[in-house]
């Protein structure tokens, strides 16, 4: 039964999977570009940081379908609004982890940095960012796995992706369509997370790996 499905839909499945992947990845990439600098900025604003994090938290609780629908009047349907909506969801985990990662750095190290004459930018670049990187990477991995799941909803507003199969399957009571949508999405999430774990291993400074205490 399923082999028949693959025979007729195989090439299309690949295209859908590819759509799914790049919608999620572009959204995560945008999320990283916005959330990491914003998270660093938040660590510089002692008073407003908790308020802003709270605000982003609330944004996160909005139902994803509602967000997707919300963008239709402004951006219409298609891939762009889907990516933008997903991007909003990627911001919070990355932002929060960046903030926590940097806040958690040992005060002594920051003072050492200041004491030997680092500018604010040099401290971010040479001390704070590398030391917070393991925590930031954890946030990026969480966000990516979430987004690959949520990207199925993009189908609702014409964004394409594996969600197309799932919704077709639901509408027509065709199990193989649902499976054809869900299983590749799961496999994709697992693979991407594995890949990101490898990336993390590459970018996290070697000196941090042997230390037991979390930075």
């Amino acid at each position: 039964m399923f082999t028949d499905f693959l025979k007729t839909n195989g090439p299309e499945l690949l295209i859908k999977a590819w759509e799914h992947l790049y919608i999620s990845l572009i959204a995560v990439l945008l999320g990283i570009l916005v959330a990491v600098p914003l998270g660093i900025l938040l660590t510089r604003m002692k008073r407003s940081a908790p308020v802003l994090i709270g605000a982003v938290n609330i944004l996160q609780t909005l139902p994803s379908l509602a967000i997707l629908a919300f963008f239709i009047p402004f951006l219409g349907v298609g891939k762009v609004p889907a990516i933008i909506a997903l991007f909003f969801y990627s911001v919070l985990p990355i932002l929060r982890n960046t903030y926590i990662g940097i806040k958690g750095i040992n005060e002594n190290l920051l003072e050492a940095g200041r004491g030997i004459g680092m500018t604010s930018w040099e401290r971010i670049r040479f001390v704070e960012f590398p030391l917070a990187l393991p925590v930031i990477m954890a946030g990026i991995r969480t966000a990516t796995v979430y987004l690959i799941g949520w990207a199925t909803l993009a189908s609702f507003i014409g964004g394409g992706g594996l969600g197309d199969y799932i919704f077709t399957g639901l509408n027509l009571y065709q199990e193989e369509y649902i499976i054809a949508g869900a299983v590749p999405a799961i496999i994709m999430a697992i693979f991407v997370d594995f890949f990101l774990a490898r990336v993390e291993g590459k970018v996290v400074p070697r000196g941090l790996k042997g230390t037991k205490q979390a930075v």
């Binding site: 030997i116 680092m118 941090l208 230390t211 930075v215």
Partner: peptide
């Protein structure tokens, strides 16, 4: 910043950067 670069500074509790 310039001033501090002209003065050596050794911190309590060592303060070496663990990632370097």
């Amino acid at each position: 910043v310039e001033l501090r670069r002209e003065i050596g500074y050794v911190i309590q509790q060592i303060g070496l950067f663990p990632h370097m």
